[in-house]
């Protein structure tokens, strides 16, 4: 049944393009969320956490979306390479940043903090 197979591939192509676009958009929105965190958090160590949202889930979703839209396997292999490199290097550079900041004598702010109320309760 060549026609049925053709229908199936066409269907799969449409589905994966739509899903890939949606995942790319989701990842880009997560990048914005991480950036908002970088802008809002009070000191360098907490900003690192917000930046790692961008580096892990934002980049992960964008690359997953691109992998779904990949036209052939070479593109897929390249995207997987980027994903592996990005995960390894972002973790390492976060650690190096935190270590360098601590070595330079920057003390992290410790303890519960809440805008507005002086002694806020910590939500889990």
């Amino acid at each position: 049944m060549p026609e049925a197979a053709n229908m199936m591939t066409l269907d799969w192509n449409t589905v994966r393009t739509a899903f890939g676009g949606a995942l790319c958009l989701l990842g880009a929105l997560l990048c914005i969320v991480g950036t908002i965190g970088v802008l809002r958090f009070p000191d360098i160590y907490t900003r690192l956490h917000a930046a790692s949202v961008t580096d892990t889930s934002g980049a992960g979703f964008v690359l997953l979306g691109m992998a779904l839209m990949a036209p052939d396997w070479i593109v897929l292999v390249k995207i997987v390479c980027i994903l592996i490199f990005l995960m390894l290097t972002s973790a390492t550079s976060s650690h190096v940043l935190a270590n360098a900041a601590l070595t330079a004598g920057l003390q992290p702010k410790i303890g519960p903090m809440r805008k507005g109320q002086p002694d806020g309760e910590v939500s889990p």
Binding site: G34, I36, R40, F41, P42, T46, V53, S57, R114, S123
Partner: peptide, 13 residues
């Protein structure tokens, strides 16, 4: 992500 988007910056490093 929830911590980034809260109106009150409710964190305890």
């Amino acid at each position: 992500i929830r911590a980034c988007l809260r109106a009150d910056l409710d964190i305890s490093p």
